[in-house]
Amino acid sequence: MIQPITLTVNGHDHPINADPKSMLLYALRDQIGLHGPKFGCGLSECGACTVIIGGAAVHACVTPLAAAVGQKITTLEGLAENGKPNPLQQAFIDEQAAQCGYCLNGMLMTAQALITRNPHATRDDIKAALQGNLCRCGTHMRILRAVERITQPQIPTGATP
């Protein structure tokens, strides 16, 4: 069952040995050593494990390696531009949009995929896109404002007291 597999993650090829039926999340975390994608449920119910494959936000916890081979996989670590947070990541920092932050991988990756698809997403669009992402700390208001900083830059920051 265990066999050589090559994954293309954040622009680099990673040869690993793994069971093609095993889920992408564990290869990314345990074998490639990334911290961005998180285990939250393993059931495609929370979004903590989200990565971007072919422009779409995908739950790595239910994506078998066999389905990921040959695809361009982007993780949270891959969003950085020249070693700096990308504009969406910077917007999360500027809004201080985190409490524990465990959900943020999913929020950022899902929002990044949305922005690519719909650069002027409204608050309702953002809510709809993030509907499958759970945050237990209740950071929702700040997450919405952070994404709006990118998609609705005309809204003054700090508009909501």
């Binding site: 993780t75 949270l76 969003l79 943020l104």
Partner: peptide, 21 residues
């Protein structure tokens, strides 16, 4: 003051207990 932990949490550089190896 901006929180010290947030930049690493949004870039994936943060080490949660779940990330310790």
């Amino acid at each position: 003051i901006a929180r010290k932990d947030i930049p690493a949490k949004v870039t994936g550089a943060f080490t949660y207990v779940q990330d310790v190896k």
